[in-house]
Simulated scan of single mutants.
Amino acid sequence: MIDLGVVAGEASGDLLGAHFVQALKQGHPELRAAGIAGPRLVETGVRAIYPSDKLAVNGYVEVLRHLPELLWIRSRIGRYFLRERPRVFVGIDAPDFNFTLEARLKAGDIPTVHFVSPSIWAWRPERIHRIRQAVSHMLVVFPFEEAIYRDAGIPVTYVGHPLADAIPLEPDVAGARAALGVAGGPVVALLPGSRLSEVERHARLMLDAARLVHARYPDAQFVLPAASEAAARLVDQARRALELPLRVLAGQSHAALAACDVALVASGTATLETALFKKPMVITYRVPALTAHLMRKKALLPWIGLPNILTHEFIVPERVQEAATPQNLADDALAWLDDATRREAVAARFRALHESLRRDAGRRIAEALEPYLEAA
């Protein structure tokens, strides 16, 4: 028997999960946990039955290619949990994978907690009915989400966002630049995404935009944190024949964001991280045409980036699909670099956002899980 079952989808879920497992272990140092986990969760003592990167697939078209393997993994991990009978299961993000698994476990009398609500407020609101069947308790990271679940009759707790706790209110810009060796002119961070499919779609786009920025700012320097060795290899392929003062980092996304003046960021959790580091950004994203068509039909909001969604305005530019061109990204980045007053204004907005999300999420999640762990 294990105490905690967990499934974390991709790098962001792995990072989020590590925060609350560390908090849980303060009260339960002998906590036994296992499931689908990445390196950060493994560091906390979670046994990885499968690695998180097995779930790092997005978009309708991409999922179809990997569907047989995903279904096989979900079936196997479900049987594992039903056999080991964890006191509580926590699904971290990865809603399409986790909700089906959670429904199976809940039907087997295993309490299911889901951490990080899918964006039902942005698209596919009908998912709330599926969530009610699958989830014993929902933990949400944004304050406006709490009422959505309460009104639907689903037990819910607003816990704040773990990244808002982990990232300092005042980033050490000078220290990060010294550590990365990028003192001097403006620094531009390039964050093409953590999934390999994202890196394939965005790396060359961002590098071409960086080349245009460099033409205007010859003293500019560029940093690109690669989420894995495979991602770094894709970046190296994309940068061939480009003369650009670029440092490809092994991870270190937070150092890159602390050091930069502006960032080009693929839509996702990294946009929130960039905002928490109080940095102006240009949000971009590309998916296959069919995926884009299907997602646009179901969209409820005009924004895709979390900073814009949370502020309910285009506080930073978004360049998606056909608009995601090197020239557009470069023009937006240069507009930020050319306007210090605008950069300071958006930093102030992001500081207020940071303070609203800073709630000691690890402790709050641990408190929400405590009744399940204490149950006989």
Rank of each mutant, 00 (worst) to 15 (best):
L64M: 14
T44V: 03
Y217V: 05
V213A: 12
Q133F: 01
V141D: 09
L31D: 08
A37E: 03
R65G: 13
V156R: 05
Y285P: 08
K54F: 06
W336L: 04
R247T: 15
A176G: 05
A324F: 10
F89D: 07
T112D: 13
P95M: 02
R177S: 07
I2E: 14
V116F: 10
L353G: 02
L300D: 08
P86D: 12
V287E: 02
D3H: 11
I154K: 14
H114P: 09
L139Q: 08
K54P: 01
F20G: 11
P168F: 05
L257F: 06
A34E: 12
L190F: 05
A164K: 12
A18I: 02
R239H: 00
V287L: 13
A231S: 14
D96Q: 07
A324Y: 09
V248G: 05
P280T: 07
Q221D: 09
A174D: 13
V6K: 00
P245G: 06
A263I: 09
N98R: 09
S75D: 13
L272R: 03
R240S: 13
T112P: 12
N58A: 15
R358I: 00
A323E: 15
A134K: 11
F99R: 08
V113D: 10
L16E: 01
S194Q: 10
G184K: 04
F350M: 03
R363A: 14
G108I: 00
Y149F: 15
E318S: 01
V159R: 13
F115D: 01
A335W: 07
K54I: 04
N328K: 12
A259V: 11
